[in-house]
């Protein structure tokens, strides 16, 4: 996926000025940066939720998006929330298998008939993960999906994410302000500055699933230095 000479402003506020970026196929690109540097705008440009100048070249048009807030329909059960996004892409017969399988993977099969108001924060975010992976997207966008979670819950959700990703790789752009989250899942990390300057660009040699407690202290130091 390529962003070619992308420009975006909100009034006088220039967020991107002829910004270029390439994300590798089936790899996770983490975008770090301070608040207001345009991380969410970047995802909205890729997903087509905002207008912009320039071009985005994608290998496919189907996009999954894991938002910071869960964005689940309050009137639909967990099962129906996932079904809501699948109706357009799978046949009626195929949908139940896909949903049940993904719900088992995220350990929510027994909660499939609950409404979002009956879910805890972590369960809601796992539904959001399940929805994104059940949808056959070419690109996965993640906007600080672990932000509102406490440390232990965050660890479990990241583990769930990594296990889903291991079996179903997609070109992923993961926006976060948390360097540890980026190191927990990403293959490549960039540090973005307002206007579209890339302050650091680091590729992690060890895949996330094999990373364990691998020491990236040198890489981390370089990133901390520019933050």
């Amino acid at each position: 996926m390529k962003l070619i000479s992308v420009s975006k402003s909100y009034g006088d506020n220039v967020v991107f000025d002829k910004f270029c970026l390439e994300a590798e196929e089936k790899k996770i690109l983490a975008v770090l940066g301070s608040s207001g540097c345009g991380k969410t705008t970047l995802l909205n440009i890729i997903s087509g939720l905002t207008d912009f100048q320039g071009a985005v070249e994608k290998s496919g048009n189907k996009i999954s998006y894991i938002f910071q807030n869960k964005r689940l329909l309050p009137n639909l059960t967990v099962y129906k929330n996932i079904e809501f996004v699948l109706k357009n892409v799978y046949s009626k017969e195929k949908i139940p298998c896909i949903i049940n399988e993904i719900l088992r993977k995220v350990e929510l099969y027994d909660s499939r008939n609950l409404y979002p108001s009956e879910l805890s924060g972590g369960m809601g975010q796992r539904v959001s993960l399940a929805r994104a992976f059940a949808y056959p997207s070419d690109i996965l966008l993640m906007d600080e999906p672990f932000k509102a979670l406490d440390i232990s819950l965050k660890k479990r959700i990241i583990e769930t994410f990594n296990s889903l990703y291991r079996t179903d790789r997609r070109t992923t752009v993961f926006v976060t302000h948390d360097i540890e989250e980026a190191f927990a899942v990403a293959d490549r990390i960039i540090v973005l500055q307002k206007g579209g300057n890339i302050l650091a660009d680091e590729t992690l040699s060890v895949p996330a699933e094999e990373r364990g407690y691998a020491d990236f202290s040198e890489t981390k130091k370089r990133i901390y230095d520019v933050l």
């Binding site: 938002f67 009137n75 892409v89």
Partner: peptide
């Protein structure tokens, strides 16, 4: 608006959006 944006990203058809998002939301 966040739910509407989500449904657009996932390419949900207007008919499904109407019956499962808009109408229940205004009900």
């Amino acid at each position: 608006k966040d739910l509407v944006a989500m449904s657009k990203v996932y390419g949900v058809k207007f008919k499904n959006r109407l019956f499962e998002l808009y109408l229940p939301a205004i009900a």
